[in-house]
Structures are given as C-alpha cells and as structure tokens.
Write a protein that binds this DNA or RNA. Sequence first.
RNA 1: UGGGUGGGCCGGACGGUCGCCGCCUGCGUGAGCAGGGGGAGGAAAGUCCGGGCUUCACAGGGCACGGUGAUGGGUAACACCCACCCUCGGUAACGGUGUCGGCGUCCCGGGCCGUACCGCCAACGAGCGGGACAGUGCAACAGAAAGCAUACCGCCUGUCAGGCCAGUCGGGUCCGGUAUCUGCCGGCCGAUACUACCUGACCGGUAAGGGUGAAAAGGUGCGGGGCGCAAGCCCUUAAUGUAAGAGCGCACCAGCAGCGGGGUGACCCGCUGGCUCGGCAAACCCCACCGGAAGCAAGGUCAAGUAGGGGACAAGGUUGGCCCGACCGCGAUGAUCCCCGGGUAGACCGCUUGACCUCGCAGGUAACUGCGGGGCUAGAGGAAUGACCGUCGCCCGCCACCGGCGGGUACAGAACCCGGCUUACAGGCCCAUCCACCGA
RNA 2: GGCCCUAUCGUCUAGUGGUCUAGGACGUAGCCCUCUCAAGGCUAAAACCGGGGUUCGAAUCCCCGUAGGGUCA
Length: 166
Amino acid sequence: MDAGEVDNLIGKGDRPERRDGPEPSELRRLPQEPRRYTFPPHLRLKRAAEFERCFARRQSAADNVLIVYVCENGSRYPRLGCVVSRKCGRAVRRNRYKRLLREAFRLLQHDLPAGIDYVVLPRPGSMIPSLAAIQRSLLRLARRAVRQLQDKGWPPQPSPPQAASS
RNA sequence: UGGGUGGGCCGGACGGUCGCCGCCUGCGUGAGCAGGGGGAGGAAAGUCCGGGCUUCACAGGGCACGGUGAUGGGUAACACCCACCCUCGGUAACGGUGUCGGCGUCCCGGGCCGUACCGCCAACGAGCGGGACAGUGCAACAGAAAGCAUACCGCCUGUCAGGCCAGUCGGGUCCGGUAUCUGCCGGCCGAUACUACCUGACCGGUAAGGGUGAAAAGGUGCGGGGCGCAAGCCCUUAAUGUAAGAGCGCACCAGCAGCGGGGUGACCCGCUGGCUCGGCAAACCCCACCGGAAGCAAGGUCAAGUAGGGGACAAGGUUGGCCCGACCGCGAUGAUCCCCGGGUAGACCGCUUGACCUCGCAGGUAACUGCGGGGCUAGAGGAAUGACCGUCGCCCGCCACCGGCGGGUACAGAACCCGGCUUACAGGCCCAUCCACCGA
RNA sequence: GGCCCUAUCGUCUAGUGGUCUAGGACGUAGCCCUCUCAAGGCUAAAACCGGGGUUCGAAUCCCCGUAGGGUCA
C-alpha cells in the first residue's frame, strides 16, 4: 500500500515537471508567463488515506475563522482538502463553506508554501465569513503552520513514510 | 364595486472577469490544449405511501402478520386524483329573541343603530365500511339507575297492626264548678265500629319528581268556549283521560317500516303508518380487497490483498414467521452451504430515452386517455452546478419636491428513476367561485 | 443515499384510556439536629418534544412535523 501510494505521488509529480521542464520551475519566478488561477483535480485531496495522514501529522493552526492542518506531500504543489461537518449547517450552508474555501485557495495558491497538503475546517458560527476574511485567515494560518512544521521536523523527506506508518 | 374563499403558475434579469463537472469536434504518441454547447428544485427536503429496475438455485395454497375501506370512475399502482353522497364544524349575510347603551320624545309606546345569544347556515374546511341480532370488552367520578330495563326513593288507592292527639258516642249510683230541677261546662273512665292524623308492613297503580352525568327508552309547541255541585251534555274543533297527577291528543322536526318515483350506485324526494333506546371498533374481533423479501452501499466485471476456525450434507438445506407443497441436493482426501473472525475499500458498468417534455386534434363534467408532429433537458463520486464587481427590478428605514443615502432580496442543494402526500417559503401574477349593492 | 430506534422534572427512570393536581432515586433550595461539616429527618420548587384528530375524557390510541441516536458496501 505504501509503495503504491508513493508511486502514485511520484507519478503525479513527474507529469507537470516535464511541462515545466523547459522553464525554470521556481514558482516565484513566473512573471514572464501570467499566473493561472485554476483548480485542477491534482490540487485536491481525494482519498481518505490522504486526509488521515494529514490529521496524523498533528500540525495545525487556528483562529476564530478556520482550522488548518498541514502535512508534507512530496510534490511541487499545494493541495487542498475541505472538511465541513454537519455542525456547520444544512446542505446549502455546507456547500457555501466549501465553495468559499476552494475559491480562497484558488486565488492564493501561488502565495501559499508549495509541497504541502492543507486540510481546512471552518469554525461553525452564526454568520458565514466573507471571502476576504477567509483569504486573510488562510494565508496567515498556512504560513504559521508551515513555519512550525519546519521548526519541528527539518527533514521533510522521512516524514511522509513516518506519518503514513503511524 | 366591496368583502370572502379555493386553485394554478413564476420564484430575480442583464453584462464583465476568474473558476468547476460532463458531452461533441479538432490538434497531439501521451499528459493536455483550443472551440462549441449543457449544468439543481417546486419542494431536489421529510422518507409517509405506491411502482419501475436488480438480486435472492421461483414466487403456489393455508394460517399468522401488515395495510386499506361510503359510492362510481382514473391510473402501472397507490393511503393519490376527479365526480358525487352522508356526517360534523363553520364566518359574512339573513331571520328571531332579550338585556343594555345611544339617536329621538315632556314621558311612554313604536322606529333606527350598536351589542349579546339562538336558528338556518353561502362559498369553504375536516372525516369516512358494517356489527338497532356474530361474539367479547370498556364507561373513572357523580348519580336511584350506565345496560336486561326496570328495580329503588318518593307519590296515590286499598288492607292489616299499633299509637294517641283532635273529634264523636256513652256514663242519668265518678269528681269539680255553675245553676231554680231537668241541664250546661271542665276533668275522669270506657268504646273506638265511624271521621281525620301518625308510624310500620303488604298487595296494586305508578303517568308529577329524584339536585347527577359526555350520554338516562327522542325533541319543541299548543290543548278553546257554554250549561251544570258533579257525573255528563252541546258548539267549533286535531284536542282528551284518570281515584290523583300527562309520557294523553294533535302539529312539526329527527329516526324506523311499507309503498311510489329518480339515480349505474352510495343515496335522495313524496305519501302513509305507528310511537321508536343507545355510545366507543384510530378497544379485541368479524367481513371484503391487497401485499414474497431486501434494497443501486441492490447487483455484475476486473485489480490488489490477510488468517483462519467451527458446523451441516437424505431423519438434510432454501424461499426474512409456521405448516403443506415446490426447488436444490445423492460416492465426502473433492465440491456446495451456514456461522464466527480477519482483510480490501481502488477502477468500470448499472447511470440516465423515460408510465419524458411540448404543440395540435378528438373523447370525457373532471381526473385522465387516444392519435399525429416536434424535441433530448445535469450525471458527480472527499462529491461539479461557483466567487467577485457593475446596472436595473422589488421591499424596508431616513432625509423627504424630483430624487438621494443605507440595508435586505425567501425556503432551500440532485446521488438509480418515476407517480403522489406532507412540511418550509420574501414577493409577484393569473384564473375560478360565493355573498351584498348598483346598472343594463 | 437506504433502513431503523428513541423522546416524561436539571439527570436517570416508573406510569394496563379514568381518584394524574404524573410517582421514585440522585441533585437544588429552605428549616431542624450538631460547636462546625458530613450523615439523618421534614418541607418546597421542578417535567409528559410540538401541532392536529378519535373519545365524555389522551402521557397512553392514530396522523404529521421537530430534535437526537444507531446501522448498512
């Protein structure tokens, strides 16, 4: 299982590397080609095991708007997973939360630290926060959590099998 | 025109930027890119019913269990829909009664208005089988009595027994008073057959009444006049009777039976008769009809992968409960089935052409059906259908002359698909129907 | 998504349609006892998830909704 998981991740990482291969692949050095704010499927967490690994890494940051769990994913991209429980409301309200979270991630994907999985949980409140508030909170919490992750375990390479095995 | 009720439909529009999920076309070995076109609802919800579909080595019968229930239709089928019948509720309007208040009057009556109650109750809403003889059961408290209908209290007539009060009679030798003697009055004694009263018992009649209660063998109204002491008689009448007192007599209404008529039917209408007893089956149950079960996480194919153990196999196993029947199954170091435990939760199919939508014609009061033309209208899978901005529409508040400013714009998100029901909903549009008034 | 279950004082629970004004335990409040606390005794407050219907009468019977919970590859 672990071997298949790693193969899948490496394969996914290989494919955009060829497209970005002719260009220098640093995300910060892309001003000559305009940044694209898309949200393709390889930027999403899609399996229960990926969510479990990110929770098992036990590195999070929170304020009164969001809770953000982070974990290294071994690729070159940030990835998003939304967890919106039934305490947040009924179906219309939960869809609203998820769409706002995805929109915030889509617009901030070039400003967030890459190679990280982000599992974002909204705090259930009486009012749904605006898109700007979610963007501010997501950016601040993501940078804080990734900094704590780097302070805690410096080598990011052995951590995914360690987290996956635990 | 005013008021009320019911039903149907829509449920923001346009533009720009950046995104997401399918489909088609083109390029490309591939990843992908470009273009075109599509992308939540009337309730998608609750999961309360009914089906299609899939599976269960077949699905037949009986019992059990569950559901439904006026009548006639519609439908694939319904607990749904349409039409109609019955019962109950019911506001406006109408009619009646009564208290109070007002207008008005010198005062009263009459009149008008308001208000309260009652009756009939427009549209409208709700609910439906039968058990006045198929059986069982329940009705607390109160009440004489709650189901067999009379017993009980009370009342009346009569008889018997007792009582002593009143009354009556007797005492000429009982007593006192009065008086000219007879006599009169009071007491006393006796009788009580007779009158009346009280108490108790019994036979009979019971037709006033019995405060209760949700409900007590139906409800309301009326019962004239004259003569006579009375019985009784006479007149008009539908109107008397008993020892006494109306449940008696008649009329109307409700109910029942018979006859006639209308309707496919539930049922309704008219006439006549006689005087008439229940309530609850959303208590058990009886009658008729219907129902095999599980549910797309059903089910099928492929890939990856751990760890087995126990039991059954003709006196057997399976069809979710039981029996019959049916089917499976007859050489066991093999194969099949069941139970416990462990593992995987990845890909594809099912997956959207269907009791589909729309238009026209025809049938039908309607629900709906038939025929013909046209159309394709979301298919996700940690789960798309979005975010932001601008203008306009609608609502609210403020300034308030045009207008300006600020805020809000509902209920709610497909998960195999349909037909219903129920529930939630800012606002808007349309149609139908009833009543009152006015006009033609 | 499908299929089920439950709802009674603050909590856990009883309650065959009728003396229900709903009982019990723990907890809460007050008083008594004690030098004080605990324990004990007495007293009080405190609920039928909501709305309709059947019935003379509903916590109970029927229907609809609400809120929790469970289970299925």
